[in-house]
Amino acid sequence: MRARIHITLKNGVLDPQGKAIGNALAGLGFNGVEDVRQGKYLELQLADQDRDAAERQLRRMCEQLLANTVIESYAIELDGTPVA
């Protein structure tokens, strides 16, 4: 099973790196970029297992290590389908 995890900064958390990327894009002449938020993307290859168990495990991975929920949110996709 293949999981894809997107980790993004929560709304309201300042993202100086995103801002610097936005400035660089403007410097290259890409106009109209109103905001840039930088995040992380992870791909996990999991041993085949029950989908519910895999979802639970992925959520625990995000809560315990992959995201810091003080400032980050996460979205999980398992075999192409979003995990609620």
Binding site: P16, Q17, A20, V70
Partner: peptide, 11 residues
């Protein structure tokens, strides 16, 4: 400890 230490604002 609560909170988190993130990238310096100046980068």
């Amino acid at each position: 400890l609560p909170g988190i230490l993130t990238r310096n604002a100046s980068l």
